[in-house]
């Protein structure tokens, strides 16, 4: 470890500690926004760990997130299981699912992968609704805990710490180096001895684990779990937009997109809720045409240019 590495760790720890203090100053409305931001920070950052270097656009976030939330709901309502036990079970189930999906999608690339992952959440949602309607009766799934938004927020900050630490470690590890090579040229990657399948599945599984864990941890916020809500494909798209908007070139890139976009969404939903879909569309177009490397990428380009011109 170089001194630069240590410095980054210290800075990260300080920032996370500050983030953990938010509940001390924020109340009701702002606490709720902070919670949303924390949730999307974790989701987008872990999404970018896999999709950033490989350029595989995964839309499976909603599937794993939904599995997390849905299992917590089912476990607590239908089987009277304790909340924390269900969090563990749900995130394990999400991990296993992510591992299987990872194995199955290995040979897919580009648009096939995108559609496969998009359809996954849809299929699980329709299957779950069907099973609920036909076999378990239409009893609601309630997640009743004594956890408030501040508690959930702290849980998510802890998960964020885990994700950032993992990302920090990956960037310095052989795995991270392998991912960068895979993102450049998969054929070359195989020919320098990289087990590309293994590397991709590991990271895809990790991001699936994180998404299902987040889905489980956030469940108490909603109290009442509905498949159509937790499996909503919109979540996957928002995660993609936020990560790409910030920039996936760096570990802390996604959060640069998460904060403004979460605030924008909050504003649009409060004032012009009919236009939320239109905003998603425009966000995608803005990213593709004006910010192909995200806000961070754009800033880095400008800095590089300025440095060159002043010399």
């Amino acid at each position: 470890m170089t001194s630069g590495d240590v410095k980054q760790l210290v800075w990260g720890a300080i920032l996370l500690a500050l983030a953990a203090c938010v509940p001390l100053v924020a109340n009701g409305y702002w606490m709720s926004i902070a919670l949303t931001i924390a949730m999307f920070t974790v989701l987008s950052t872990s999404w970018a760990l896999f999709s950033g270097p490989t350029h595989y656009i995964s839309l499976a976030t909603a599937a794993f997130f939904g599995v997390g939330g849905f299992l917590v709901g089912t476990g607590m309502s239908d089987y009277n299981t304790d909340y924390w036990t269900m969090v563990v079970i749900a995130s394990l189930a999400g991990t296993v699912l992510a591992f299987l999906v990872g194995l199955a999608t290995l040979r897919l690339s580009g648009v096939y992968f995108v559609i496969f992952t998009l359809g996954l959440a849809e299929m699980i949602r329709t299957l779950v609704s069907w099973i609920q309607n036909n076999f378990t009766g239409s009893r609601g799934l309630y997640v009743l805990t004594d956890l408030g938004e501040a508690d959930i927020y702290i849980h998510l900050v802890l998960v964020a710490a885990l994700v950032y630490l993992a990302g920090w470690w990956i960037a310095r590890s052989r795995l991270g180096f392998a991912m960068r090579i895979i993102g450049n040229d998969e054929m070359v990657a195989r020919h320098v001895g990289i087990n590309t399948a293994f590397s991709k599945v590991i990271l895809f599984t990790f991001s699936g684990f994180v998404a299902s864990l987040v889905g489980a941890l956030i469940a108490p916020r909603y109290t009442y779990i509905e498949p159509n809500g937790v499996f909503s494909p919109e979540l996957s798209f928002i995660v993609v937009i936020m990560a790409l908007l910030g920039g996936t070139g760096r570990l802390w890139g996604p959060i640069v997109g998460v904060i403004p976009f979460a605030l924008l969404q909050e504003y649009i939903n409060a004032n012009y809720s009919n236009y939320s879909t239109l905003v998603l569309g425009i966000a995608f177009l803005v990213i593709v045409y004006f910010l192909p490397h995200g806000v961070l990428g754009r800033l880095e380009e400008t800095w590089a240019k300025r440095r060159r011109s002043t010399w």
Partner: peptide, 18 residues
């Protein structure tokens, strides 16, 4: 087939890490 977004040193290292 080089690795375009990597530096020369990283390109050469790519061969010896795995």
């Amino acid at each position: 087939r080089i690795l375009p977004s990597l530096t020369l040193l990283e390109n050469a290292m790519a061969g010896m890490v795995f």
